[in-house]
């Protein structure tokens, strides 16, 4: 019994030194990457999902509950994207600091202007989010907006490091603005390009670059492509052609391959978030590669 108590006490004490640096848990890899950009070595950021995982659908794994328990800041896209698993992590973690409404919880989706906000939702429409399309990270202007909110939040949680966070944010914002101008110049030829999406998760990217989504491989959001729907798409694309079929790294490629073979489109896999490809190691390379892939395929 004594040894058990001793082990438990040790277990309770051991991670304490680690709390000196802020523990940031992100629901999606892009926010973990952003936290590292702004926090540098003053925080430790990890992501609950990877670019190979569908952020709508992961398991509320025990390891994630343990991570949320030790988090000082939880940053998530929100907008109902994580409803399938995040509530469990919050309820099971015994960490009131990261509950919605607390300074330790930041909902990135609320920091940006949202697309596809539905006044009326019904499950017959598939997996729709009434608060708007949650896949906000592929518009780099949104990254800049979330970066501002995140900086303010980090300063509130860790005021001793305020100058550090402010300086790093200033530096990041300057580099990001320069990159943004570069991307927009490079992306100009993509304006008006017609594309097909797998799931409606590229809306912010298309909106930013002025591209045009003519159809989705999913008959309804969250419903996997069916043979009947693909056949319908081939007919639709004859009348209204598209150049590219876009999908994220975590999405099954068979439907877009099939459509590419049966219509004059090209299938393109975008990294979608940090870690979605060999090259997309951080936020800058994520957009560099996304533009390269789009421009290359549209040529």
């Amino acid at each position: 019994m004594k040894t058990i108590v001793l082990i438990l006490t040790l277990a309770a004490l051991l991670p304490l030194p680690a709390w000196a640096t802020l523990q940031v848990v992100a629901c999606e890899p892009e926010w973990a990457a952003l936290a590292s950009e702004i926090g540098g070595d003053r925080l430790q950021a990890s992501s609950a999902t990877t670019a190979r995982q569908d952020p709508h659908r992961i398991e509320a794994r025990p390891s994630l509950i343990a991570r949320v328990r030790n988090a000082d800041l939880l940053i998530c896209t929100g907008l109902e994207l994580e409803t399938g698993w995040l509530p469990i992590l919050l309820q099971q973690s015994g960490n009131s600091r990261v509950m919605p409404g607390q300074p330790g919880y930041l909902e990135a989706g609320l920091q940006v202007p949202r697309l596809e906000v539905h006044a009326q939702v019904d499950r017959s429409q598939g997996d729709v989010h009434s608060a708007g399309n949650p896949h906000i990270q592929l518009d780099p202007r949104n990254i800049a907006r979330v970066a501002e909110a995140l900086t303010r939040r980090l300063i509130e949680l860790d005021p001793a490091q305020a100058a550090h966070y402010r300086a790093r944010h200033e530096d990041f914002a300057r580099r990001w603005q320069a990159a943004l101008e570069r991307w927009e110049t490079r992306g100009a030829p993509l304006r008006g390009l017609a594309v097909v999406e797998h799931h409606r998760n590229m809306s912010y990217l298309l909106h930013w670059l002025g591209m045009n989504s003519v159809a989705t491989l999913e008959p309804k959001p969250g419903v996997e492509p069916s043979a009947a729907h693909l056949a319908h798409l081939t007919r639709q694309l004859q009348a209204q052609p598209a150049r590219l079929v876009l999908r994220a790294a975590y999405q099954d490629g068979r439907a877009s391959q099939w459509l590419a073979e049966h219509t004059g489109t090209r299938a393109v896999v975008l990294p979608f978030t940090v870690g979605g490809s060999e090259r997309a190691r951080d936020l800058f390379s994520l957009f560099d590669e996304t533009l390269d892939l789009l421009l290359d395929a549209a040529r």
């Binding site: 277990a11 025990p62 390891s63 343990a66 030790n70 099971q92 015994g94």
Partner: peptide
């Protein structure tokens, strides 16, 4: 009453 240990491994 539940207690989740502050360990990287889930221990409840």
């Amino acid at each position: 009453v539940k207690w989740l240990a502050p360990t990287p491994v889930f221990l409840e």
